[in-house]
Design a protein around this nucleic acid. Sequence first.
DNA 1: TGGCACACGTTATAGCATAACGCAATTGAT
DNA 2: ATCAATTGCGTTATGCTATAACGTGTGCCA
Lengths: 132, 132
Amino acid sequence: MNLPQLTKNQGLVFDVLRRSEQPVSAYTILDKLRDHGFRAPLQVYRALDKLLEFGLVHRLESLNAFVACAHPAESCCRHGTVAFTICNSCGHVDEFHDHEVDHRLEAFTKARRFKPEKTTIEIRGLCAACAA
Amino acid sequence: MNLPQLTKNQGLVFDVLRRSEQPVSAYTILDKLRDHGFRAPLQVYRALDKLLEFGLVHRLESLNAFVACAHPAESCCRHGTVAFTICNSCGHVDEFHDHEVDHRLEAFTKARRFKPEKTTIEIRGLCAACAA
DNA sequence: TGGCACACGTTATAGCATAACGCAATTGAT
DNA sequence: ATCAATTGCGTTATGCTATAACGTGTGCCA
Ligand SMILES: [Zn+2]
Ligand SMILES: [Zn+2]
Ligand SMILES: [Zn+2]
Ligand SMILES: [Zn+2]
C-alpha cells in the first residue's frame, strides 16, 4: 500500500509527529502550526482522523496523544494489533507487534464470541536509559 | 489483603461503580452523587485515586471512564495485568487475566530492559449479544 | 450546469482533569 | 491530655481534550 496523497493540513500535522521524539497532543500540534495558519483544534483533529484512518499515525489512549507510525512501510501496523512501551520519564515510545499476543487475545475473544474492532496495548514504565 | 476501610466519599463512589453495568465517567459519578452532597469533580477524583490505589477500581483509558473490579477478592487484579473487552454498542465490559499474554509482554520488556509499571490492554468491539 | 463529495475555516460548547487554598478529623507519639 | 503529622474534605478557579453546528470553496463527473 502506497502512501495516500496528503492534503496540506494532513501533511503539516504528519510532519510535526514525524519530527517529534515523543508523543504530541492535539493542542500542542495546534500551537506548533499556528505559524502555518492553524487557528482551531478542529483543523488538527480532522487531519489526525484521516492520518489514523490511513494508518500513518497511532493514538496513545493512556496519554491522549499521538505518534507517527514507526513502521509506515509495513502492512502489519495497519492490519494487526500494535503495542507500545511508553517511558514515564523521558516520553520515549517504542512501537512493536507480537503475533503471539495477538493470537492469544484473538483466542480469548473468539471463545467469547466478542468481535474485536480495535485493540489497545500500552505499557507505561521506564525505558532502559531512564531506569538505569 | 482485606478490603481497606473506605471513607464516606470513597464508599459512595465505589457503590456507584459497583451498581453500574457499564463504565462510568467521573462527571457522571458526580451527577449521581449530588444528592449526597457532592459538588465538585475533585471529590470524585480524590475518591477514585484511592480506589484505584486499593485495586478496587480500574480505569479504562480508551473511554476515560471507570469500572469496579470484577474480581475484588482475588489478588491477581492487584498484582497482575488486567485486560478488558469493551462493547462499543452496549458498553458491557468483561475483565480478564491472561498469564500467557503477561509473560509474553514481560519477555518483550525484559529483553529491552524496559521496566513496566502499568500495562493497559483494552479490546474495543462488539459483544456476543450485539454482534449477533 | 447541476449535484455531490470532500477538505477547510470559524465559533461555540461539551467533557475530562488538576492547581491551589484552607479547614476538619484522625492518628499516634510524647 | 497535647501537640504534630497525616489524611480527607470542600471550594474556587483554571487548564486540557474533543466535538457540534454552520458555512465556504474546490474539484469532479453525470
Ligand atoms: Zn504503526
Ligand atoms: Zn526514558
Ligand atoms: Zn480487577
Ligand atoms: Zn454489546
